[in-house]
């Protein structure tokens, strides 16, 4: 099993072939389209992370000592970035998730989407993913 850092490195590698912004986004959009959806009836208030620009739903549970995340968004680019976050953090131990620095976001040039002023729900989602993991550590 890859560690969080190894998975991040793999993503940075994949993105290094794109030198055009639009190609990079095309790839993120494809990832977003492939992300398993949360069923509409599962999109309840308690799973909703409200952003001004886009909304995010996140559900988390621990199975066999590992965190399992599913998430969704109404915006496809947000969803693509969620897909990357889930790929990195899913099936990892709660203590590893809690201390993950997620440097890959910056390395692939997507940090603007994780700026608190962007208000797309992603910053809160990362916080929430870590909170969910932290709760399982103690």
């Amino acid at each position: 099993m890859d560690t969080i850092t190894e998975k991040e490195e793999a993503i940075i590698d994949e993105f290094s072939i794109y030198d055009d912004w639009m190609d990079k986004y095309e790839y993120i959009i494809e990832l977003g389209k492939d992300l398993p959806l949360i069923d509409d009836d599962q999109k309840t208030e308690d799973k909703l992370i409200k952003g001004c620009q886009s909304r995010v739903w996140l559900s988390a549970e621990k199975r066999d000592g590992k965190m399992k995340y599913t998430a969704d968004s109404d915006a496809i680019i947000t969803k693509g970035i969620i897909a990357l976050l889930i790929r990195v953090l899913n099936n990892e131990k709660p203590e590893d998730i809690a201390k993950a620095e997620l440097r890959f976001i910056k390395a692939i040039g997507l940090q603007e989407h994780l700026s608190p002023t962007r208000s797309n729900g992603l910053v809160s989602m990362v916080k929430q993913m870590k909170m969910n993991a932290l709760k399982q550590v103690s």
Binding site: Y25, I77, T78
Partner: peptide
């Protein structure tokens, strides 16, 4: 079939500044 956030993000990548949201 599109979300304003996505359209605004991609327009920006093409140099076009619009506003999205409420």
């Amino acid at each position: 079939g599109t979300h304003p956030y996505d359209v605004g993000t991609l327009l920006d990548k093409l140099g076009i500044a619009v506003r999205t949201g409420h």
